[in-house]
């Protein structure tokens, strides 16, 4: 456990030392929110708000998490000898989830500042946001480990990642739409549980499959 936290701390320190990837993502985030604000300025309905919000999360997520293994290219051999693959993937999953959650909080603040709030943003909306974000971040972390082994990894990140996250994205978007339109919590619990179980599948598979990618 100690080692996992050390690895998370290492990622945090790397991001703190060369800040430009983080600021790059923040700028990217603000740019797409401003673009959507300009394009949807006067005719935004709650359903559109919801779809747009999740699309922005998707694009931010794929760009933010792409770096998680690509930045390790020079350190792979070193990490290979100091830590076991299970600990590395655990640390990466924890870090990308934290990173993504901070980004989502920032984006929801900017997004609702510009595009307004659709009305019903209750606690369940944030629970769903949290669960959906875990799914996206974990799936993209695993895809990043695959894409980092290839030659044109930036494109492959999107090609490989998008089809895989479609189940998560569809579930999360539909739950959040129901909540925004004022559905009671009892309507969405079974869908939320399905979303959670998809997350569990993805995280479990990451732990099983990552050692194979790491060894190659």
């Amino acid at each position: 456990m100690q080692e996992v936290f050390e690895l998370v701390y290492k990622d945090l320190k790397t991001d703190w030392r060369n800040r430009y990837p983080v600021f790059g993502i923040l700028l990217y985030l603000s740019a797409i929110i401003i673009i959507s604000y300009m394009s949807f300025m006067n005719f935004i309905k709650p359903e559109v708000w919801n779809a747009l919000f999740w699309l922005i999360i998707l694009f931010t997520s794929v760009n933010a998490i792409a770096k998680s293994f690509m930045q390790e290219e020079n350190r792979t051999t070193y990490l290979y000898f100091v830590a076991s693959p299970v600990k590395i993937i655990a640390a990466k999953l924890i870090y990308s989830n934290l990173y993504q959650f901070v980004l989502i909080l920032i984006s929801i603040v900017i997004f609702s500042l510009l595009l307004g709030s659709p009305g019903n943003l209750n606690a369940w909306f944030f629970v769903n946001l949290f669960v959906g974000s875990i799914g996206l971040a974990s799936a993209f972390t695993m895809v990043s480990s695959l894409a980092s082994k290839t030659e044109n990894n930036a494109t492959l990140m999107a090609i490989l990642g998008f089809p895989i996250v479609i189940p998560i994205l569809l579930m999360a978007t539909s739950i959040s739409k129901q909540l925004i339109l004022g559905a009671p919590a009892s309507d969405i619990t079974s869908d939320l549980l399905t979303l959670l179980s998809v997350n569990v599948i993805i995280i479990a598979l990451s732990f099983i499959l990552f050692p194979f990618t790491w060894k190659s």
């Binding site: 799936a139 695993m142 695959l146 082994k149 290839t150 490989l160 089809p163 895989i164 189940p167 998809v198 599948i201 993805i202 598979l205 499959l209 194979f212 990618t213 060894k215 190659s216």
Partner: peptide
């Protein structure tokens, strides 16, 4: 072979 096998399993399971 290895990377694509991993992706194959991962994608099939989702």
């Amino acid at each position: 072979a290895k990377i694509s096998a991993v992706y194959n399993i991962f994608a099939f399971a989702t």
